[in-house]
């Protein structure tokens, strides 16, 4: 029996307002430790909304997100921030690096915010992360001196900085050329192979095919779940 890193139970996210809208409509999901899960679905189907819930960027209207066995619905705002800082790295479609800082400083940001390591340790880790993503010589460049693919890789390095259990990425290659897309996917694959859990939203069926498991979302619900068997088994265990 393998450990479950990330679990969603009856997850619902509604938007109140003049036109009430259900972004995520009852999703049950379990992701094993070290699993690479791809989420596909048409535009506007609620993939990003689901990911924000899984990454604790947003709070569900109903249901529960369990991260490393810990339910999160009762956590305070600062406790949720701590989970984001240490357990769950987020990669956005747009890189969202701080423009005034170098690649290295951007990668150091979560480590500095956590304040668990000494400055030399942090620098060493930051440089080795950038190096492993092929950005060794770009450590001291600012985001506007980098290409789109390079920026996205810096963003991945930043997400990895505090060694989170889980990496959540929302169309990380959506704005990239083919070569960069391949690079980024290989990196994500490697991360999963090294034992970290990866959940990634993508439009690209070829890329989704390289994941351990795929779920297809339509109108905020899981329409289809395919993969190498493990997925369903885990789901059953979880429910």
């Amino acid at each position: 029996m393998s450990e479950i890193a990330l679990q969603a139970v009856e997850l619902v996210r509604r938007i109140e307002g003049d036109v009430a809208h259900t972004l995520v409509n009852g999703i049950d999901l379990s992701v094993k430790k070290g699993e690479f899960l791809a989420i596909t679905g048409p535009s506007g189907s609620g993939k990003s909304s689901l990911l924000y819930l899984l990454g604790l960027l947003d709070a569900p209207s109903e249901g529960e997100v369990i991260i490393c066995g810990e339910p999160t619905s009762k956590l305070s705002e600062s406790e949720r921030a701590d989970v984001r800082l240490t357990k769950c790295g987020f990669v956005f479609q747009f890189h969202f690096l701080l423009p005034e800082f170098t690649s290295l400083d951007n990668v150091l940001l979560p480590m500095r915010a956590a304040g668990k390591m000494s400055e030399p340790e942090m620098r060493e880790r930051g440089l080795s992360l950038l190096g492993s993503l092929g950005l060794g010589e770009h450590a001291n460049k600012r985001p506007n001196q980098l290409s789109g693919g390079q920026r996205q890789r810096v963003a991945i390095a930043r997400a990895l900085a505090n060694r989170p259990e889980i990496i959540v990425a929302d169309e990380p290659t959506g704005a990239l050329d083919t070569v960069s897309t391949q690079q980024v996917f290989k990196i994500l694959r490697d991360i999963a192979d090294q034992g970290q859990t990866v959940v990634v939203v993508t439009h690209d069926p070829a890329l989704a095919a390289r994941a351990d498991r795929r779920i297809h979302i339509v109108d905020g619900k899981i329409a289809e779940s395919t993969g190498q068997g493990g997925g369903e088994a885990v789901c059953e265990m979880a429910t």
Binding site: A113, A114, R158
Partner: peptide, 15 residues
Amino acid sequence: QDIAIMKSLGMREYA
């Protein structure tokens, strides 16, 4: 946007 990034990375609001 930077504020949103920093918060989403896990920096506390008061920080």
